[in-house]
Design a protein around this nucleic acid. Sequence first.
RNA 1: GCCCAUGUGGCGGAAUUGGUAGACGCAGCAGACUCAAAAUCUGCCGUUCGCAAGGGCGUGAAGGUUCGAUUCCUUUCGUGGGCACCA
Length: 997
Amino acid sequence: MEYNFREIEKKWQQSWKENKTYSVTNESTRPKCYVLDMFPYPSGAGLHVGHPLGYIASDIYSRYKRLKGFNVLHPMGFDSFGLPAEQYAIETGQHPADTTEKNISTFKSQLDKIGFCYDWDREVRTSDPKYYKWTQWLFLQLFNSYFCNTQQKARPIADLIKKYETSGNKDFTAEQWNNFSKKEQEDILMQRRLAFSSFGEVNWCEALGTVLANDEVVNGVSERGGFPVVKKKMRQWYLRITAYADRLLQGLETVNFSDAMKEMQRNWIGKSEGAEMEFAIAKSDDGQPATDGPLSVKVYTTRPDTIFGVDFLVLAPEHELVNQITTADQRASVDEYLTYVKSRSDRERMAEVKQVTGCFTGAYAINPFDETKKIPVWIAEYVLAGYGTGAIMAVPCGDQRDYGFARHFNISITNIIGDFYNGEEANPTKEATLENSGFLTGLLMKDAIGVAIDKIEELGIGKRKKNYRMRDAGFSRQRYWGEPFPIKWIDGVAVPLEENELPLELPHVEKYGPGPEGEGPLANIPEWTAQHYETSTMPGYAGSSWYFLRYMDPQNDATFCDRKASDYWNQVDVYIGGTEHAVGHLLYSRMWTKVMYDLGLIGFDEPFKKLVNQGMIQGVSAFANVIGFNFGTNLMAKLNEEQQVKINKIKSKFKNPEAINFYISEDLMKYVRITHNFPTTEEEKNHMEFQDKIYTILLKQVADEISKNELEEILAVHPINNYYKVHVPIEYVNYKDELDEEKLKKENSRFSDAEFLTMNGIFICSREVEKMSKSKFNTINPDELCDKYGADTFRMYEMFLGPVEMSKPWDTKGIEGVHRFLRKLWRLFFDELKGKVWTDEKATDAELKVLHKTIKKIDSDTEQFSYNTAVSAFMISVNELADLKCHKKEVLEQLLILITPYAPHIAEELWDALGNEGSVLDAAYPAFEAKYLVEATKEYPVSVNGKLRTSINIATDAEEPAVREMVLANEVVQKWLEGKEPKKIIFVKGKMVNVVI
RNA sequence: GCCCAUGUGGCGGAAUUGGUAGACGCAGCAGACUCAAAAUCUGCCGUUCGCAAGGGCGUGAAGGUUCGAUUCCUUUCGUGGGCACCA
């Protein structure tokens, strides 16, 4: 009877489904454990082997915890709203709901093949009205709340209204408030709501017809599609995540995330502490006041200790004061500079970081601590309008950017740090003692910071201030396929829908194009606009910010998640996913959780107790070389139009690697790349001869093309000018990097007319490890591997590749080893010819030792997510049991329980074959007993001067004097001693012996 | 530029955290079984000197601490990721 994994896996997957083996209840006396995978977006491309890595890890952990007696929640669902489905809808006209449905079912069938233990009854989809009803409801909770700065938490906006009605605030009295119009009141409240609407500069992407979040813009272009992005003022919804900046930082101390992950979040929040202070603007040089009244510039600085080193101020070009302070003399230059800045796209401003530009405004400011010092005020694009106050005080001796600016524009530099400043570059130290610094002179800089701020506050010219790099999160998309906002706009006021009006369902549309003025597609529906509904929809992270709660109580129509359920399941114990969500999703869901906690909706304020980041599985791409040509044309003036068209056609054909259908085998490339100008040796001569031959072949096709067009006289071809590589689908390349040309040409239209130049008939591809993706033609489909080797083999092999958190390249060859291991395990129970070989005999000490060694190792490795070493331990265990010819049920049965999380199908089958009732998942996890591992003696390694020379068998309870005697008596040790006395003998009990000579 | 990872055989990776470097697997080589193949089993498998016994070298590189360093410290190089005129 052989290991028929296909039958076994089908059978048990069926059985699990029918018996609802993975169904989880919210009532249990067992301790709870919540294991969650990051919400997948059901893309049309399906799974490749990189995707299930994290799912397998979480599945192993879930099954392990269940065996250990926990009530384990391990759900799966789909983040099914999103841009790609809509993009696809625009391209193909199919409704996103239909394509999403189709994608999800493909996705689910792929997952089921791998044998995951999800409770599918708890599946959620963000695009399901039953789900997004509660996303809308939670949005309204955010809308109806504000952040109370005194209590540092969210409170109902009604509390704030009551306060305004009875005591007003610093800007208005209660009476004034009560006399404000409805619109005026709402505008004021809007400034405090956690979900609020405002006009703001947003990243507008014409091509996508939508506004993008900061983290969706990469280098000035959209992350998806790479389309240009420009600033545009629009009405947008935002989440006031900045209010939670401090708590998001503090919360990091309480969660078990990797340091790298925490650091990324800290960077993103970008907290800095410093001071805001005013610099008065002086009258200008020519005696003319630059302005009519007293003006001042507010700057933000983290280094108020350097106040006496300020040599100039810089305002952002967009700063509102620029116009007022510019003197008549400088007006023209400033205007010119402003025009220049406007002409520069964000992209350019980012690309040319090193270039120093700026313009003097003509105005001077006065240093509040040294009124004799006139400080020129400049504008420069390196100061950003959106950060801090949009103005800085420049200290060239301490800040490299300021230093560069001062040098470039010949501004004199004040040194306040003595020898720490060498005159050639700025020194940003905080350890220097201040000089030339008035009341701060003699203080250590880091101590002076606090002193300076105190003084600034005392004089009333500024105040201590925290600053954050993080901005409020843009929360609307001018898109169709997302949650509609439960908001109506009436007379310019955002009016929330009542709870009983939810869900506000997404209407059906025929077209997905943008509406007028960059509005979303919903603006094209008369029935929608007639109701004055908001026309934008929520972004992808709306639904995914709280989904982990819905799994706890997925069917509930009365509330988003019953408090009893969320109190029971509480935080996610282990959250597994990639680092790509480090700052987006994780920060948003942490914020939502804190708001829900503040409002008393749930009982915890961090969603994820522990985070495990899975590494990427990379693909090994294959490439074919392509070479481009340079052309020279003569007599261009004499050419007629027809000839010019022909020439351009040929030029573009042989310059564009996509168009050249002529590929060169890797082993030929050295002849193309390396040229010996004066070949001397025989080898070099042969090389050049060979190069000539290749050139002849390469140039022939170009020459043919030229003569076909009768351009011989006109067009000259220069040899090779450019090397390109083109991806070749990896299924046509074998492990020796040889390409199956024939098959490729037959099956892939892109290569049907291709020509392959080879050395001796075999085309060799080059290889490179890169991200696994469809576009790189290097994906491996898990379905095929499951078909060929079985899900159990596939699961164990993915884990065997290396630590879960590490990225590593995929190599299909190695899977054989794991498959052999499972067959070897099978043979401990069944022989191909004899059938059943397991027995009820009593296990020997040696066999029990193997078992308990394995129990110990597997238990600790599984708990620590060290799955690669656990798989090794199983292999060692099975190897040893096979060597011992152990077929005893007493041992094997325990081993089966251990392996259940890793290879659930074979474990169930053999468990069943041994005559057990019920699922192996309900068995008791084996208990480790140390007594089986106790040894009487140990083979001690013996080193001389730290170098291993021999080993001696010594009783484990032997003490130093006895060991010393044995070691000195050893002949190998004696040989190294050469009759001398050892200086020292180091004995570490249970470890080793070292003799020092 | 700054921050965080990471570097070990032909390859993926182990090493109980300062104590026998290379477990386990892949690939490779040799052999057994077989008419043959597959499957399975046995042995070898970092490098170098040596017939062997045995020795030298070896965890990106160079130093240091230590009886002893893949592990700790300093400097440096490569790779990957994150952030970036952030005041």
